[in-house]
Amino acid sequence: MTENDNWEREFDHRWANSAEHKEPSARARMLAARWKENPPNPAPFRADPDPAPRRSSWASTAMVFGCVIAVMVLIGLVQFGSAH
């Protein structure tokens, strides 16, 4: 046998993936043993601990209009300064 044959036999991923029984990882075994005696409390998926207070729609609208007006004034000042 050549060295290449030994390498292919040692790292044959197709053979390993086709195994009927796959052993769980060490972390999975540890968590299963821990949860068997003390199961975790149910928790929602990616729950937000403290939801942010909701802003009213008029405040958001005023903020958008204020930003648009500020940009228009800034563009006007730049154009006025470059005209002279």
Rank of each mutant, 00 (worst) to 15 (best):
M1S: 03
M1P: 02
T2I: 09
E3P: 04
N4V: 06
D5Y: 10
D5A: 03
D5L: 14
D5P: 00
N6S: 08
N6H: 09
W7S: 00
W7Q: 08
E8A: 05
E8P: 01
R9G: 02
R9Q: 13
R9F: 01
R9D: 04
D12F: 00
H13Q: 14
H13P: 00
H13K: 07
H13V: 14
R14I: 09
A16H: 11
A16G: 04
N17F: 02
N17C: 11
S18G: 15
A19D: 07
H21A: 15
H21F: 14
E23I: 12
A26Q: 03
A26P: 02
A26Y: 14
R27L: 13
R27N: 05
R27D: 12
R27G: 05
A28E: 09
R29D: 09
R29E: 15
M30H: 13
L31R: 15
A32F: 10
A32R: 02
A33H: 14
A33F: 07
R34V: 09
R34S: 07
W35N: 15
K36C: 05
K36Y: 06
K36E: 12
E37Q: 08
N38L: 08
N38I: 11
P39H: 04
P39N: 02
P39A: 02
P40S: 05
P42A: 09
A43Y: 08
A43D: 08
A43Q: 13
P44M: 06
F45K: 15
F45T: 15
F45L: 06
A47H: 03
A47V: 10
P49C: 08
P49D: 05
D50K: 10
P51I: 15
P51F: 01
A52S: 03
A52F: 11
P53S: 11
P53H: 12
R54S: 13
R55I: 09
R55G: 02
R55E: 12
S57F: 07
W58S: 13
A62I: 10
M63V: 04
V64F: 04
F65A: 01
F65W: 04
G66Q: 00
C67M: 15
C67P: 01
V68A: 13
I69S: 06
V71W: 06
V71I: 14
V71A: 08
V73E: 05
I75N: 06
I75S: 14
I75H: 03
G76P: 00
G76V: 12
S82W: 10
A83N: 05
H84V: 10
